[in-house]
Nucleic acid binder design. Structure first.
Lengths: 112, 112
DNA sequence: TCAACGTTTCAAATATCATTGAAATATGGA
DNA sequence: TCCATATTTCAATGATATTTGAAACGTTGA
């Protein structure tokens, strides 16, 4: 995972509305949520929500798929895990300061 | 860990200079680095560095201690771990989507 | 085709952040 | 005490982010 990518991912999460959105999606799991439902749950106005979803999408923290007239958003667990892995990488010069493991969730994949 | 705290921590890391600073501190471990040394390693100008260190410090991502005329900065591993734990919390509604463990490093403590 | 619904785009206003250089502060040694 | 070193503060500038409402877009069902 590149530093630039990590900064983008962190920036995507470093905002009240987006963190709320992302957590809602993480907690609902792979089924995801329609944009309108996210708006209801979080109280974020549709246009503002769309802006933040695009931001999260651009950071690859969420994915979307059209379903009828709904757009379903889901958390990108693989990116989340890559992000978490990056932050603990090379901790203490690579010495085993303590057992480090990569947090994982369903649908996780490889990361660099 | 409160949402507000998490946003602050994420925002602290979501910036090129600060991520570089933090990673340098993570990799050097508990021994830490003097401000001037961080400036050398990262190429960040002293005044800018000081700004970012204050930001990281305010987010409780780093700690500092005076040592002679040097100020030694160290990564706050406990906060980092709390942060990582928060992001994986309640994943998929609390269902065991896969083994989730809290990444850890030396000197880690409790978190909420 | 038409109207309703769900979502996104756009432009403008406001707020916040990052960088710079100069000056200030504090520590240690001659 | 005086000077050099290490770090921080300050003010100003430029750049980015966030929110809002109105309008546009695409999908569905009548």
């Amino acid at each position: 995972m590149e530093t630039k990518t990590v900064v983008t991912a962190l920036a995507a999460l470093a905002q009240d509305s987006r963190l709320a959105i992302f957590r809602a999606l993480v907690q609902v799991g792979p089924a995801g949520l329609a944009a309108g439902r996210i708006s209801e749950l979080t109280g974020i106005a549709p246009s503002s929500l769309s802006f933040h979803l695009k931001e999260l999408s651009h950071a690859d923290m969420v994915s979307s798929q059209q379903s009828g007239r709904f757009v379903i958003y889901t958390a990108n667990f693989s990116t989340m895990n890559a992000l978490l892995g990056f932050l603990t990488e090379n901790c203490c010069g690579g010495n085993p300061c303590s057992p480090v493991c990569t947090p994982a969730c369903a649908t996780s994949k490889e990361s660099t």
